[in-house]
Simulated assay, not measured.
Amino acid sequence: MIDKRRLVSSAFAPKIHGPVTYCELGMSDSTQRFLFDDTDIRGEMVSLTDTYSHVLAKHPYPQPVAQLLGELLAAASLLIGTLKFDGLLILQARSSGAVPLLMVECSSAGELRGIARYDEAQITADAGLRELMPEGMLAMTIDPAKGQRYQGIVGLEGDNLAECFSSYFATSEQLPTRFWLSADGQRARGLLLQQLPADRIKDAEGREASWQHISTLANTLKTEELLGLDNETVLHRLYHEEPLRVFEPRALQFRCSCSRERSANALVSLGQEDAVQLLDEHEGNVVIDCQFCNQRYSFDAADVAQLFAGGGSQSPSSTRH
């Protein structure tokens, strides 16, 4: 019998043995944190449907590219929960192959956007990460609202993105962290496990044994289970014998951070001479497209003159002379 008490992430609930305590998901896009009471290990699951659909609707991605982009969206959603900061997490995977770029941004508020560049002529239906992104590199950038930007880079040397992210944490001397990621063009899902600083288990041998035990159980999770089952069922199948606490889900959503103001700032950064030259080259109208959401921002001669006069990015009134 499953206890349906609601747990909140701001406070721990009593220890629960056997089947997990779980609150029903009321949203299609969310992350959900869980904690193993007897070990120093935390976990998180993510489910993306609407956000994933919004991202894929912006460009006609082939299925293998849509799958990689979904996995990267899931990874970003899981990672943002491990970082205690106000700002933006940016994941970029670059390669010399058919997919030269995958890019996802996730804000600390749970707002996501993503894009991929690809050469469809080089893509086969069953292509995986190694075929699509040879000689690839993965960069993780943390861009806080206040403070210094940080970036870490690792090679795309795994068979899939989950292995690459797990390797990133293994080589960065951070807390041991494992990922399981899946996407099928309709739903993107992920599971994260992370070892916490020593508290309940002090000795290194005991910590390693508990980490291997929890990770080995997660390795039994099949792709169809991760994609097709809800969090409650997945966690019960994996950890029904472990004392586990599960917390309230945290909502995620698609939102593009582009704006007319940011596009105007890009024009200003060129300098007035170059901006005017662009106007001449484009018959008096410069259009800036957002690659993430396809929004278009148009600037004519009056707009550009206003920008460099310090008048802001809003279009001049039609009655203004």
Rank of each mutant, 00 (worst) to 15 (best):
M1F: 13
M1I: 14
D3A: 14
D3R: 13
R6D: 12
L7R: 10
L7I: 13
L7V: 15
V8N: 15
F12G: 12
P14H: 12
G18I: 05
E24P: 05
L25S: 14
G26T: 15
M27P: 02
D29F: 03
S30M: 01
Q32F: 05
Q32L: 11
R33G: 01
L35N: 06
D37P: 01
T39I: 08
I41P: 00
S47V: 04
T49Y: 06
T51Y: 06
Y52L: 02
H54C: 13
V55G: 01
L56T: 00
P62N: 04
A66L: 07
L69W: 06
L73D: 05
A75K: 00
A75V: 01
A75H: 02
G81R: 00
S95I: 10
G97C: 07
V99A: 09
V104L: 01
A109G: 12
G110Q: 07
R113D: 00
A116N: 02
Y118Q: 03
Q122M: 10
I123R: 00
M133V: 14
P134S: 06
G136Y: 02
G136Q: 04
M137A: 03
M140V: 14
M140R: 03
R149T: 10
G155I: 04
L156S: 08
G158S: 09
L161A: 06
A162W: 00
A162D: 02
S167C: 08
F169P: 01
P176R: 09
W180N: 10
A183L: 06
I201K: 09
K202C: 10
A204P: 10
A204Y: 12
E205S: 12
G206P: 06
S210I: 03
I214R: 09
T216E: 13
T216G: 12
N219W: 09
K222V: 12
G228H: 01
T233S: 15
L235I: 06
Y239D: 07
L244H: 05
V246R: 09
V246H: 05
F247T: 00
A251T: 11
L252P: 00
Q253R: 15
R255S: 12
S263H: 09
D274S: 11
D274N: 12
L278I: 03
D280P: 00
G284H: 05
V287H: 11
D289N: 14
D289E: 12
C290N: 03
C290D: 04
F292I: 03
C293N: 08
R296K: 15
Y297T: 09
F299D: 11
A301Q: 07
S313Y: 09
S317F: 11
R320S: 15
H321R: 12
